[in-house]
């Protein structure tokens, strides 16, 4: 139990991830499914950013007053790249949703299943 308490941030990220996954699987509306996907992405980004934190760490900038310990900059670079990927996936998904709605006039997954 102690280990869980000390890694509360990781636990929160995993719970958030599961909420997102549940939304993707269980929700009927395509836009809500997409929101679930975004929640999963946010959970992963939050998790990766927290792995870079160092107790009392400063921003790793070069300069005369730069003193260790430094926070790890790599997770931030990863998350920035990941956000770019997530935005493009979301944009594509929204445009597909528009195309689906134009063709079928509904966004409910069960009604769409009856059509094809």
């Amino acid at each position: 139990m102690d280990a869980l308490w000390w890694n509360l941030d990781y636990v929160a990220a995993v719970i958030l991830f599961c909420i997102g996954l549940y939304t993707v699987v269980a929700r009927n509306n395509l836009i809500k499914k997409l929101l679930g996907l975004n929640i999963m992405e946010t959970a992963v980004f939050a998790f990766i950013v927290t792995t870079g934190s160092v107790d009392g760490g400063a921003a790793p900038l070069v300069g005369a007053d730069a003193l260790p310990p430094f926070a790890s900059p790599v997770p931030h670079a990863m998350v920035l790249t990941g956000i770019v990927v997530a935005v493009s996936v979301t944009a594509l998904a929204l445009s597909l949703i528009v195309a689906v709605y134009r063709d079928h006039r509904t966004l409910e997954a069960d009604e769409l299943r009856e059509i094809d």
Partner: peptide
């Protein structure tokens, strides 16, 4: 478009899982 959206949901969810594990 609907097939592509379902593909996207499955593919993007698995990608997010993979990114999590890389983290």
């Amino acid at each position: 478009p609907l097939a592509a959206f379902r593909y996207l949901l499955a593919g993007a969810s698995s990608s997010v899982l993979i990114l999590f594990c890389i983290g």
